[in-house]
Write a protein that binds this DNA or RNA. Structure first.
Lengths: 290, 290
DNA sequence: AAGCTTCTGTCCAAATTCTGTACAATCAAA
DNA sequence: TTTGATTGTACAGAATTTGGACAGAAGCTT
């Protein structure tokens, strides 16, 4: 539900009929909205915030006290962020189709998924969990290499299709690469897509990228942030020296499951939760520190 | 980018209704436009720039703050209206865009390419030659790893986009995989697309696939032909035993540059010319042996 | 060369928004 | 009735955003 924050308080007031003073009061007293800020500190709201204000107004009109109404409005918004029926069923269908090497069926499921929900939700509730589970089955020996290859191919095609023109725009830019030797790139692509919906420009180098190559690409693209991803911490530790050098020159983050456990002798931001969650976190951080 | 840069600021102002001062302010403050310059330094705009200004105006009219409107306008890819150009020129443009890590520009070139010609021609005259040359530059040390990764990512996204539903249909089916250890999958994807235009059904396992995985996938999909690809002959030779076994059970072809030179102790069809040419050859063969 | 346009750089002013505090009306409980 | 919390509103003074203006130099057209 999160779109790019664009509306200032006056416009939100005009669209909702709630005075700017009251909007600020609701934010201060109940935390109803948590708008991003412009460089100069002006509040920037999303369409989703407008929906939340409308919910607040409905509850007020029904006679609910303001504090309660705010709580309810926040609840309904949270509900909407996790749409109910579709995703779990779709995830099972997707899994069945891919296990049967049935590419058209898998694409049909993905069609319905993307038609019914946002990229964020599709990634968070279906694709990433599916990849997670595939990885676990793989570790247990329950998934064949063939299945893993086939599924990766289908999903990579769809996700890269969505990545179309993700390098375009004016937002902060992020250079993405997998650590040397790392071949699991789909989580990184998902992360890139989640960043894209938040207004970022993406530069993508893909699987198994030497750190020097990241450095050389960064010198051309001058990204706001560089993110290097790996599922195992060893790939970070084996390149600690080069990574430290990169961290000195660039704003660097490490991502993927391996980021949390990596034992490194320098400070670095680690993004080891889900792609969508970390994209949100990185976006907040970028807004604060620009 | 989009048309020949020809409009000066006054003309752009007249067509958009935005004052020259404001156009310059938008450029300076938000980077909305990045016009080329005449020899004397005058700004020269394209039709695409006009579209971008119009997008900016739409967002402003919707009440979005100017800074955010510029961001949105730059994210929209409304500016594409390109004159058709000959493949050789497009190949050079593609190379330049990818060398500069300019993904939107590369996609613009590919858009024009696929709009102006068939998949076959695009693959044969632009994509495959480009990959060829990238490989040669890489061997000479003239292409950076970063460039190779970035270019692969962009092209993989486009080609896999075209691969949509290539497993559907009634024609002969072909299972594709790269040999174990082989990472260059784009030629194989191109081959799959060329087969697809000739009516084949494609099952795709992608890079670095163990031969046993190919066998297990083949047992599910029961393809008419299995094609395994590698750019070096060693990857075939190292798996000779497994390949012979596979060749006994399945109609097998070896593809890629490594297929011609591979020293093997059993008979196997080798497809080592270009993807499009070999797709044609394989299709003829399938017709005859049916 | 004349006349128009465009260049860069700087300044300005109106509108909007910011934070923080204050205040009146309402309402439930003491 | 009194008391205190809740809630919508108001305002002051500073800061931000944004469109516009202008000067002097330089490019472009005829």
């Amino acid at each position: 539900m999160s779109t790019v924050p664009t509306l200032r308080i006056g416009e939100l007031s005009r669209r909702s009929g709630v005075s700017p003073e009251l909007l600020r009061a609701w934010e201060r007293r109940y935390g109803l909205l948590k708008p991003d800020r412009s460089e100069g500190g002006l509040r920037l709201y999303t369409e989703g915030d407008l929906a939340r204000v409308h919910a607040m107004q409905r509850h007020l009109a029904a006679g609910v006290a303001a504090a309660e109404a705010a709580r309810l409005a926040a609840m309904t918004a949270a509900d909407r962020d996790e749409p109910a029926a579709a995703p779990p069923a779709l995830r099972a269908e997707l899994e069945a189709a891919l296990a049967a090497f049935d590419e058209p069926a898998a694409n049909g499921v993905l069609d319905r998924l993307f038609a019914a929900t946002t990229v964020d939700t599709a990634l968070r509730d279906v694709i990433v969990p599916y990849l997670h589970e595939l990885g676990e089955r793989w570790e247990r020996g329950d998934a064949s290499v063939a299945e893993e290859h086939f599924a990766s191919g289908v999903l990579r095609g769809r996700l890269l299709g969505l990545s179309r023109d993700w390098g375009r725009g004016l937002g902060p830019s992020c250079l993405l690469a997998c650590a040397p030797g790392e071949r699991h790139d789909l989580g990184l692509v998902a992360f890139g897509l989640a960043l894209r919906t938040r207004g970022w420009r993406i530069g993508y180098l893909g699987a198994d990228t030497p750190v020097e190559s990241v450095i050389s690409a960064a010198s051309v693209l001058a990204p706001s942030v560089v993110v290097i991803s790996s599922v195992t911490s060893e790939r970070f530790e084996a390149n600690a020296a080069a990574l430290r050098e990169l961290a000195a020159a660039q704003s660097l983050c490490l991502g993927g499951k391996g980021a949390a456990a990596a034992n490194l002798d320098f400070e670095v931001v680690r993004l080891s939760a889900g792609p969508v969650e970390e994209a949100e976190r990185l976006t907040q951080w970028a807004r604060r520190s620009r």
